[in-house]
Design a protein around this nucleic acid. Structure first.
Length: 318
DNA sequence: CAGACGTGGCA
DNA sequence: TTGCCAAGTCT
């Protein structure tokens, strides 16, 4: 490659690599690769989906579960799922309601439905094996840009920019010098992520996992532990004096009293029930009838609840 | 593109 | 106690 440039120069060049294409060596962020991947080698958590026996299916299941849900809550459910459904075919053979039930309280249960649908699609379109191509992954239900890149990178060792909330925050600080990334992912962020991606395929995959882990363990949203950060000395945000976030406030979501809370209560009853649930039992979870009906209708139209007629409901059987 | 979509832990 | 935050996707 090249000699290691002065750190701050390297950072600035990487940040500006978007527009021009100057000395490619100084602009490629090479100075960060070693420190971050070395740190990862020493500090990476031993998570089950990172073990070789997890396979691509284990990686995919974990990625679905980790969408907006912390690792600590995913761990036990992940183990149950992989034990019960070690292959996509096993899940595809179940009623979708069983996936919703086994999802437990992870939240956003539509993910369970989509994972079940993804397993079916894998069975039908790919012979039961999680596809390797980014485009084929992206075509699966519940798989967006992030998850497609993550599976391709973590499960198959391919070179993809994996841009999740952790990586976005690390880049925002280390390279762009801001405390937080923009609310929505921008083209500039994608461009930067591609520019920083190591050329070597295996190193790129390791870099993706390492930057994510750094954001999860050290460069956290609230209390970043910069004294433990392998690139603190090169961090643009630190070098700028750790300025506070400017711009529009990060959007915050309310929950109490919303349809989402009602949906959650309704679905909790149905998950626990073995037999179809009478309307009157569901009515007991929320006293406001209009909102309650709207929430139930929403669950039905989402395919999370199956109406049986006669005022009885259950998790979907097909 | 802003908003919908669950749940629980922690400061 | 309230508010923030957690490996996003879909419409």
């Amino acid at each position: 490659m090249t000699s290691t440039p002065a750190t701050s120069t390297a950072m600035t060049a990487a940040a500006e690599t978007a527009s021009a294409a100057p000395a490619a060596e100084a602009a490629d962020g090479t100075a960060l690769h070693g420190p971050v991947t070395d740190w990862f080698d020493e500090h990476a958590r031993d998570l089950p989906w990172r073990r070789p026996e997890a396979g691509a299916w284990g990686v995919m299941v974990s990625e679905f579960m980790l969408q907006q849900t912390p690792v600590s809550r995913v761990l036990p459910v992940y183990e149950q799922w992989l034990t019960r459904w070690p292959r996509p075919a096993n899940l595809a053979a179940e009623a979708p309601g069983e996936a919703v039930r086994a999802w437990g309280r992870l939240g956003y249960p539509r993910r369970a439905l989509r994972l079940h649908a993804a397993a079916s699609a894998i069975q039908e379109r790919h012979g039961g094996d999680v596809p390797r191509e980014h485009g084929q992954l992206l075509a699966l239900p519940g798989v967006g840009e992030y998850t497609a890149a993550a599976v391709a990178s973590f499960a198959y060792g391919q070179r993809h920019a994996v841009l999740d909330t952790n990586v976005r925050r690390v880049f925002a600080r280390a390279v762009t010098g801001r405390q937080y990334p923009p609310n929505a992912t921008t083209a500039a962020e994608r461009k930067l992520a591609r520019a920083l991606l190591p050329q070597d395929e295996q190193l790129a995959a390791r870099w993706a996992a390492a930057t994510m882990e750094l954001g999860a363990l050290v460069c956290t949203a609230r209390g970043p532990e910069c004294h433990r950060c392998p690139i603190a000395a090169q961090c643009a945000w630190q070098l700028a004096g750790a300025p506070a976030h400017e711009g529009p406030p990060r959007r915050t979501q309310t929950y109490a009293g919303t349809d989402r809370q009602v949906r959650g209560k309704l679905l909790a009853v149905l998950r626990e029930a073995v037999a179809p649930v009478p309307q009157q039992v569901l009515d007991a979870v929320w006293d406001e009838p209009v909102q309650r009906a709207r929430a139930l209708d929403g669950l039905v139209s989402d395919g999370l609840v199956e109406p049986l007629g006669g005022g009885r409901y259950r998790l979907p059987h097909a």
